[in-house]
C-alpha cells in the first residue's frame, strides 16, 4: 500500500478496495453491494477523507472478495467516479473503474407515486440515461424519468 490515506483503514491481504465514493453515499454503496448482508468476508470502511474532487469521500475494503463487473457497475448510480483496486498479497494487481450500466434492475425506486412499481410488489427496471455526466433513470413501466436529485435506493 503506497498511498498514505489507505493506511487509515486496515490494509488487506487479498480482496477489493473501493475508493472515491462520495461520503454521503457510503451506506448506499454498502447496501447496493449487499455488504450489510454478507457474513464471511471482513468488511472495513472509512469515511470523511478529504478529496479534491468529492469534498469528502469514503473507502470500503472487502477481504477475499472480487466483484463481477455487472455487480460493481450498479454502484455507478451513487458513486459514478468510484475506482476499484484489486489486491493480491497486499499489492494492487489491477485497477478498475465503474462503468455506468445501460440498464438497472431493482436497486432504485421510481419517483412517480402513481407508478405500478410503487403499488405492487415488482422489481423495478430502468434504462439509464447519462446526460452530461448526470445520471437519470427512465422507468421501464411508467416511462417517467427519475433524476439524480430524486434518486432513492431501495434498502
Amino acid at each position: 500500500m503506497k498511498e498514505d490515506k489507505k493506511l487509515s483503514v486496515t490494509a488487506i491481504q487479498n480482496g477489493t478496495v473501493i475508493d472515491h465514493i462520495p461520503a454521503q453515499n457510503l451506506f448506499n454503496v454498502i447496501s447496493i453491494l449487499g455488504l450489510d448482508q454478507i457474513t464471511e468476508n471482513l468488511v472495513t470502511f472509512g469515511t470523511n477523507f478529504k478529496s479534491d474532487r468529492l469534498g469528502r469521500k469514503a473507502i470500503i475494503k472487502v477481504s477475499d472478495k472480487y466483484f463481477k463487473d455487472i455487480d460493481i457497475n450498479k454502484i455507478a448510480l451513487v458513486a459514478p467516479n468510484a475506482k476499484l483496486n484489486i489486491i493480491k498479497d497486499y499489492e494492487v494487481v489491477e485497477k478498475r473503474q465503474v462503468i455506468v450500466p445501460t440498464e438497472i434492475n431493482g436497486i432504485a425506486r421510481c419517483m412517480n407515486p402513481k407508478c405500478i412499481t410503487n403499488n405492487e410488489n415488482i422489481v423495478t427496471r430502468f434504462s439509464v440515461l447519462d446526460r452530461n455526466g448526470s445520471i437519470s433513470l427512465k422507468c421501464n413501466y411508467c416511462e417517467k424519468i427519475t433524476d439524480q436529485q430524486h434518486l432513492q435506493i431501495i434498502r
Binding site: K114, I116, Y141
Partner: peptide
C-alpha cells in the same frame, strides 16, 4: 384500462 402508470407494461 388501469389508473396506475406502467400497469399495462407489467
Amino acid at each position: 384500462r388501469h389508473p396506475l402508470e406502467g400497469s399495462a407494461r407489467y
